[in-house]
């Protein structure tokens, strides 16, 4: 398991070898964790402009303090049913290769500091569409937290289109 961590994560991880801090989010009832170093900000997506002809995962584009952010609907990406109407949405701002993205999620949780050696690999029966973007699982008391690998996630959305 720690092997996995070492190969799959970059230097930041080595630097703070013991613990990694995660921002937890909830998508469709499932707890996910994003490495805190990858999270730029958390915001409420407002006035999202839809982008015709865009991939279905793209919720649209929005103005976040003067920057144009491409919002990604995580429920759609994870093949979960859409959120009920009127339920508030949240978004996690990510910088990827100099571009701003916002992952639209159900709710933001807390910041957890978790020891690296407790990380487990993806269970082999995990839905491949999830496994594709998951960097492992942490067993928390009472629930499991799937690590959302932001790089893999965005790469998976950008690349097939470029091909």
């Amino acid at each position: 398991m720690s092997n996995y961590a070492a190969t799959n994560n970059n230097e930041q991880l080595h630097n703070s070898s013991e613990h990694v801090q995660y921002v937890t989010v909830v998508i469709g009832g499932q707890l996910f964790g994003l490495q805190i170093s990858q999270v730029h900000d958390v915001f409420v997506p407002e006035k999202v402009t839809r982008v015709p002809l865009a991939p279905p995962e793209v919720e649209g584009v929005l103005n976040l303090r003067g920057r144009i952010v491409t919002a990604i609907n995580m429920r759609r990406r994870l093949h979960l049913p859409p959120l009920e109407e009127d339920q508030g949405m949240m978004a996690v701002g990510i910088e990827f290769k100099g571009e701003s993205y916002g992952l639209v999620i159900d709710a933001v949780g807390e910041v957890l500091s978790l020891p690296v050696n407790e990380r487990e690999e993806n269970p082999s029966n995990l839905d491949w569409r999830w496994a594709e973007i998951s960097g492992g699982v942490h067993r928390l008391p009472g629930q499991l937290m799937v690590i959302l690998d932001v790089d893999k996630l965005l790469q998976s959305l950008i690349e097939p289109k470029a091909a």
Partner: peptide, 23 residues
């Protein structure tokens, strides 16, 4: 963003005076 760059129908996007984004 590079995710949308393959859409040939648009050349870019911008923020309008009212703060909304437009393609």
């Amino acid at each position: 963003s590079s995710m949308l760059r393959n859409l040939t129908m648009f050349s870019g996007n911008t923020i309008l005076g009212d703060g909304s984004v437009i393609m």
